[in-house]
Design a protein around this nucleic acid. Sequence first.
DNA 1: TATTGTTATACTCTATAACTATA
DNA 2: TATAGTTATAGAGTATAACAATA
Lengths: 161, 161
Amino acid sequence: MSPARKPPQISLPVLNDDPRGWEVKVAVAVLQFHGRLERRMSEALSPHGVTLAQYDVLMTLWHGDGITQQELAERLLVTKANVVGLIDRVGAAGWVERRPDPCDRRANRLYLTDAGRKLAIEAQPGQFALVRKIFGGLSEEELQQMHAFLERLNGASTECG
Amino acid sequence: MSPARKPPQISLPVLNDDPRGWEVKVAVAVLQFHGRLERRMSEALSPHGVTLAQYDVLMTLWHGDGITQQELAERLLVTKANVVGLIDRVGAAGWVERRPDPCDRRANRLYLTDAGRKLAIEAQPGQFALVRKIFGGLSEEELQQMHAFLERLNGASTECG
DNA sequence: TATTGTTATACTCTATAACTATA
DNA sequence: TATAGTTATAGAGTATAACAATA
């Protein structure tokens, strides 16, 4: 059972109130808000004995079982070496299992167990409720606007160079 | 010299594309964007040999020297025990020093050293440039809108219960 | 040769609890 | 008694490098 720890540090005052324009103000606000969001999501998860990183694994597999560790590493933007430890932990908790790929004997395919699905079903409503609560202060139209902004920023922050 | 590591895991697909409304979509987008932002800020910091968490410390002290470890812990939303290690590390790098509080012999006051100020001066422009680049795709008006949304969300996510 | 997964090693950050010195 | 800082312990997550088995 993973011992319910707080999320990593929130990286709040990375940039302090500075006169150099709104970009920095927004960046600070994003960092600040993300810290709180992450913290509260972690707290909501902790009664289920799962960390946010582990929940990411479960949700990725919930979205689509049977991927390899390498594929999971790519989706999580983590090295394959780290996936080993991650799967060791969710595996030890009984939520995920490795099955050898019959066509490629180097590879493992990852599957949610019944317990893993059960956990996801139990934990998801709380997560959704929390998110609805936190974002409930914005209207649907405002949420759509913010979503559009973030999509554009996600595009920009993916660019190289 | 702290060895320039990547930020913690990005917590991306915590909630997957789900039919239950825009709150969840926006939450996923925030998590996603924050992951990229944090990663790129860390990368920009790593040539200076400082982590994001350590940079937080430096920026907090840049903003105002002479606070106690307890006060720093409160601002960083971290336990005082963690601040000990954090200050040990930035202290070992020569960026911050503890000076005993003359009025309260239990307390330390934290000060940026010349090297710490030098580092901040060297690292800040890169951070600001990066932020301007990432957020440059949004107009000033859009940035102001987004800032307003985030401020409202920050208020909401602070509420208890 | 390239790829999948593994192990080994080391570091940062976090949490809790118990402790010391001082207030 | 309460507070500031420390130490001890533990665990999660990350990175790099080298390795085995397989393709």
